[in-house]
Design a protein around this nucleic acid. Structure first.
Lengths: 208, 208
DNA sequence: TATCTATGCAAGTACTCACTAACATTTCAA
DNA sequence: TTGAAATGTTAGTGAGTACTTGCATAGATA
């Protein structure tokens, strides 16, 4: 039933992907597009290029596949904070880094994030794991903004809304591009610069 | 088969909801939570308080129910523009009105919007109808900002990103609250004010 | 009273889905 | 060469699902 310790072939070709990984990748891709129910084991097996039965040799059941995929949203806070590691002489540089880091994280984990959005109401463990994500992104930036305030580089004003606006912008752009194939015609670089402009201007004192 | 012209009982009680409407409401509610496949005709009938067969007396098939619900995302541009009707002496007042109008629209149509997000990849007509929504919201605000610029009340700067940031903020807040039951602890009124502060400051010239 | 309309109810059909069982084939290593 | 591990193949099971049919019933109407 359970393999004591799988010592798979791994013939040295880096190209050859493990069956288990291929199944996970296929499931992830399909669930993100079609939802949990729409991603039938038959379709998953076809996309993974394995026999349907093989799926159940690697996973107890379909639900287990989802649970495995859900691990992909762990460590998000860690990743976001890592992107902000180090010191910044400029607020703009910090925001730029955060924007790219956050957007990159969204794209990197887009499939599991989509699954979470879609299945939020269907699987309790999804909402449990996922619900912290949107707050986290805001919190991390918010506390960084407060650092700038504490160091006197920024006036002491509401930093939560500022962080929320910044994060929201890239989330919206991400959703528009990756959920709906939208012609929002967004150049990421340009958007980052423009958003930085407005935000910095927005939270800086006028009487400079 | 098809009823020539339905002259339903309508006994005068305003309380009594039409069977057809109850089915639509139940379907909308369930599909928004569980997705199209998750909203089985059995569950819909139970929630609507009718017999399952009755559903198929009112609708050719399940797909037709979805098509009917999809009509709920028409006229969104109209609604958004209506909220901006009239003249504004102040930029702030315009933004405030737009924020409330936009957020209200999201809440008002939350079920159909959720269905669209969830089913975007499954039903071609969904994406066709839905894909314009996110752009529309930005466009309407964007063109209003440009009016302010043309009237000399605002410096001629990028108004698209400003509109995008503003709209994104309330979309994010909406999603956090209504898709995930998030403890973002957002007071709508306060958020509108804060977001207006930052945006106005952000797009106004410093050397006032 | 008789008719019509909307609905309920019971049963069933055709299909799909997750999942299993049994056996065959390949691959690789001891 | 033998044996074990991973996978393929074929067939099947039981549950659920959209949808149909036929008949019964209640209420309003003519």
């Amino acid at each position: 039933m359970d393999q004591p310790h799988i010592e798979p072939p791994q013939g040295g070709k880096g190209e050859e992907q493990e069956t288990r990984e291929r199944i996970l990748a296929a499931a992830s891709q399909l669930m993100a597009k079609k939802g949990y129910k729409g991603a039938t084991t038959r379709k998953i097996s076809e996309l993974a290029g394995v026999n349907e039965v093989t799926i159940f040799r690697h996973f107890k059941n379909k639900e287990t596949i989802l649970e495995e995929l859900l691990k992909g949203i762990l460590n998000i806070r860690q990743q976001l904070e890592n992107h902000l590691h180090g010191e910044y002489s400029e607020l703009r540089e910090m925001l730029r880094r955060y924007a790219h880091g956050y957007y990159g994280m969204l794209v990197e984990r887009k499939e599991i994030l989509m699954i979470c959005m879609i299945e939020a109401d269907n699987h309790p463990e999804v909402i449990k794991l996922f619900s912290s994500v949107p707050v986290t992104a805001v919190e991390v930036l918010c506390s960084k903004l407060q650092q700038f305030q504490d160091q006197g580089h920024l006036p002491k004003k509401d930093s939560f809304t500022a962080a929320l606006m910044f994060v929201s912008t890239f989330f919206y752009a991400f959703m528009a591009k990756h959920r709906i194939n939208l012609a929002l015609d967004l150049d990421e670089e340009q958007l980052v610069e423009n958003a930085c402009d407005i935000l910095i201007n927005g939270i800086t004192d006028k009487q400079n």
